[in-house]
Computed example of a mutant assay.
Amino acid sequence: MSAMPDQLSRMTEAMPEVTQTTRTPKMAARDVHVYYGETHAVKGVNLDLHQDEVTALIGPSGCGKSTFLRCLNRMNDTVATCRVEGSITLDGKDIYDNKIDVVQLRARVGMVFQKPNPFPKSIYENVAYGPRIHGLAETRLDLDEIVATSLEKAGLWNEVKDRLDTPGTALSGGQQQRLCIARAIAVNPEVILMDEPCSALDPIATARVEALIEELKGRYAIAIVTHSMQQAARISQKTAFFHLGNLVEMGETTQIFTTPREERTRDYITGRFG
């Protein structure tokens, strides 16, 4: 939902403060282009993700933000017509290098999708699946601890601890999304990517997920695609505005929403288009 000018002051009141520092990014994208066949979907994007920071990707539908997000853990590899050019690094190493184990990459760079997608398994097995296949638990007690800790971090443990054997699909929509977040963090990722994680949720469930993102910020680098200007203002420290495949402007969230440098950014935030 786009914000009108008289909403901007209310939005910025709740914005988290950002302290400017010079830091090495956790992930860095340089001159990234993405093509679907002949369609040029993402055009020369340069963007950094930092540890302990939430970066919001905003922009109209079809502007390339979700396509770019999927490049960060090579989800676009599953699309036959997709071609990615440029450089994306994780801790300085090119994630598109032929020597990279994509399964291990996706453990380090987890993804939470727009629609909750729990496995058709129990709550316990949803969370245990990743640690089990990655060999993170030597014993059942180790696995139990990982499951409990992950559900606690996702703010779900107290709600499900007495019914871990029930299907994950039996949970409410908001609980399912938090279960998917627990599943993502169970394999000890370093980066979490979220593609409109609250778009299918009611306001109460959305508030729970946003509070969870705020808590997780201290442990991970987080990038979130959102169409809600209010959500971007509430939860992010950095905001990147995409339009027609281009990264038009990126900066501290307060700056983007109060004194954007680009006219297109100002027009989008104030509801003149998008």
Rank of each mutant, 00 (worst) to 15 (best):
G218S: 13
K26L: 12
N98V: 08
I192E: 05
G44W: 00
S236N: 00
M15L: 13
P25E: 15
V45N: 06
Y35T: 06
V84I: 12
G92H: 11
V54Y: 07
G218F: 04
T12F: 14
A29R: 00
F241H: 04
V225Q: 09
H50F: 15
M15N: 00
F242D: 01
V18F: 14
G173L: 10
G64H: 06
E85L: 10
Y36I: 09
T24C: 08
T149C: 10
V54Q: 08
S2P: 08
P118N: 13
R264H: 10
K65Y: 03
P131N: 06
R23I: 05
I224C: 10
T12C: 09
Y35P: 01
C198N: 12
C198G: 03
H40I: 14
D165F: 07
V102T: 11
E125N: 13
M27F: 05
K115M: 15
R208K: 15
T169G: 15
S122Y: 00
V127K: 06
P116W: 14
A137H: 01
C63V: 00
S2Q: 12
E38H: 15
E38D: 15
Y96K: 03
I181L: 04
R272V: 14
C63P: 12
R219K: 11
S228V: 03
N76V: 04
A186G: 10
D165S: 13
R208G: 01
I256N: 04
A29K: 01
I100G: 11
D267E: 14
R264D: 08
A137I: 02
V102K: 05
L49P: 00
A200R: 04
N158T: 00
A205H: 00
D97W: 08
I256G: 01
Q7H: 14
R208I: 09
L143R: 05
G168A: 13
